[in-house]
Lab assay of single mutants.
Amino acid sequence: MEQATVKWFNAEKGFGFIERENGDDVFVHFSAIQGDGFKSLDEGQAVTFDVEEGQRGPQAANVQKA
């Protein structure tokens, strides 16, 4: 698992990007966020996640709020 920071997340559209420590951004979809209830992330929030290869490149999976 990697630890990184949420760059931005649009709760209405259900997706955003996580900024990795190496500077690369990773796409995150609300369905990858672990937990119950409304799944959203806040800008600047610390998260841990795995990286999977998606249809359009790397994307976050198993996202957990740190």
Rank of each mutant, 00 (worst) to 15 (best):
T48N: 07
R20C: 08
R56Y: 14
Q55S: 13
E43Q: 15
G35I: 09
G16I: 04
F38I: 08
A4G: 15
G57K: 04
A11N: 10
G16C: 08
G23W: 04
T48M: 11
Q55G: 10
D36Q: 12
F9Q: 00
L41G: 03
G37E: 07
A11Q: 11
K13D: 02
V47G: 00
D50W: 15
N62E: 03
Q34T: 10
E43P: 15
A66V: 15
F49S: 02
R20M: 09
A46Q: 12
V51T: 08
T48R: 11
Q55C: 15
A66N: 11
H29P: 03
G54V: 05
G44H: 07
G14E: 02
D50G: 09
D42I: 15
V26L: 15
G44E: 03
G35M: 12
G35C: 11
S31T: 12
Q64G: 07
D24F: 11
N10L: 05
R20E: 04
L41Q: 03
R56K: 12
V63F: 00
F17P: 01
F49K: 02
K65M: 10
F38M: 08
F9E: 00
Q3V: 13
N10Y: 05
F27E: 00
H29G: 02
G57A: 04
V47L: 04
A66I: 15
S40W: 15
W8M: 02
Q59E: 08
A60D: 02
F17H: 00
A66G: 10
A60I: 01
Q55D: 11
E52V: 15
A66K: 12
D36G: 11
N22D: 10
K7M: 02
H29Y: 06
A60T: 00
K65Q: 09
A32S: 09
N10F: 06
Q34I: 14
I33A: 02
G23M: 09
W8N: 02
K39T: 06
I33Y: 03
D25H: 13
N62C: 09
L41I: 05
D25I: 13
V51D: 01
D50P: 02
P58C: 09
F15N: 01
V51N: 03
G57F: 04
K7T: 03
K39L: 10
R56F: 14
V47E: 01
G16N: 02
A4F: 06
D50Y: 15
A60F: 03
E21V: 12
G14S: 02
V51G: 01
E2Y: 15
F9L: 01
T48H: 09
G35A: 09
D50Q: 14
D36W: 11
V47S: 02
N10H: 07
K39P: 06
S40Y: 13
K65T: 10
V63K: 01
V47T: 03
F49H: 03
Q64L: 10
M1T: 13
V63A: 03
D24E: 13
I18L: 15
A46Y: 13
R20S: 05
D24H: 11
Q45E: 13
N22M: 09
F38P: 10
Q59G: 04
G16A: 05
E21I: 12
G23H: 08
K13F: 10
W8R: 02
A60M: 01
K65L: 13
V26N: 00
G54T: 13
E52K: 10
S40D: 07
K39C: 09
A66L: 15
F27M: 00
G44C: 09
F30S: 04
G23Q: 09
L41T: 02
E53H: 12
E53D: 11
D50S: 14
F30Q: 04
G57W: 06
D50C: 14
E19K: 15
Q45N: 06
F15I: 07
G54F: 06
K7Y: 03
G35E: 09
V51Q: 05
M1F: 12
Q34G: 08
A4C: 08
G23K: 10
E19Y: 14
W8Y: 06
E19V: 15
E21N: 11
Q45K: 03
K13N: 05
F49M: 08
S31A: 06
Q3E: 10
F15D: 00
Q34N: 10
A61N: 08
G44F: 05
G35V: 09
A4M: 04
G54I: 03
A66D: 09
E19D: 06
Q45V: 08
F15P: 00
F49N: 00
Q59K: 09
E43F: 12
V6F: 00
V63E: 01
F17V: 07
Q45R: 05
A66F: 12
Q34Y: 09
G37W: 07
E52M: 13
R56S: 09
G35N: 07
F9N: 01
V47M: 03
E52L: 12
F27C: 07
Q34H: 10
Q59H: 09
L41E: 02
V63Y: 00
F27I: 02
F15Y: 15
E2R: 11
E43S: 15
I18M: 05
N22Y: 11
P58R: 10
E12F: 13
A32K: 08
F9P: 00
A66S: 12
Q55Y: 14
F27V: 02
F17N: 00
V6N: 01
V51P: 03
G23S: 07
D25K: 10
A11S: 12
I33T: 03
G14P: 00
G57H: 04
E12A: 13
A61L: 09
K13A: 08
V6P: 00
T48L: 11
A60V: 03
N10T: 04
G16Q: 03
V28R: 02
N22S: 11
Q64N: 11
D25M: 15
F15R: 00
I18S: 01
A11H: 12
I18N: 01
Q64S: 10
K7P: 00
Q3F: 14
Q34K: 11
V63Q: 04
W8L: 02
A60L: 02
D25F: 12
E53W: 15
Q3N: 11
A61G: 08
D42F: 15
F9T: 00
G23P: 03
G57Q: 04
E21W: 12
R56D: 07
S31D: 02
K7W: 03
M1G: 12
F9I: 00
N10W: 09
L41N: 02
D36H: 12
N22K: 11
A66P: 08
A11K: 15
I18H: 00
E21M: 12
E2C: 14
A11R: 14
T5Y: 14
A32F: 05
E19H: 14
E12V: 13
T48W: 14
A4W: 06
F17S: 01
E52T: 12
M1P: 13
E12R: 14
Q59M: 09
A11V: 12
A61W: 06
G57V: 04
D36V: 12
F27W: 05
N22C: 13
N62F: 08
V63M: 02
V63D: 02
G54Y: 06
K13L: 13
A46S: 12
F15A: 02
P58E: 06
A60E: 00
E52Y: 13
A11Y: 11
G35R: 01
V26I: 13
D50V: 15
K65Y: 10
K7R: 10
